[in-house]
Amino acid sequence: MKRITRRDKLKIYGDLLSALDAEANADKIVLTRVQVKINVPFDRLKCYISELYELGLIQDQESLKLSKKGKQYLKEYEKVLEFMKRMGLTYQ
């Protein structure tokens, strides 16, 4: 059986930004689809989205498009995760 591990906020932010970026090409970002992708309760998802907005990582809370800062952060985040994977390190 696969062990479910707790994610810290950083990992959730990363997963959320990644999901929002993947949905960016759609006409409208459907929150429930994002919720399923990153596996968090809906009320918590709303909280995380407003936190991302406060951090300047998304343009606004309506379109949910990533800001320039958000895109840079996501790029760096994915690179470091890939580096950790290649180094054989587990981040959970």
Binding site: D8, L10, E76, Y77, V80, F83, M84, M87, L89, Y91
Partner: peptide, 15 residues
């Protein structure tokens, strides 16, 4: 140092 820089978790400081 980048894994520590991202996560701020001391366990990655060993690297």
């Amino acid at each position: 140092i980048k894994p520590y820089g991202l996560t701020r978790e001391g366990r990655y400081l060993g690297l």
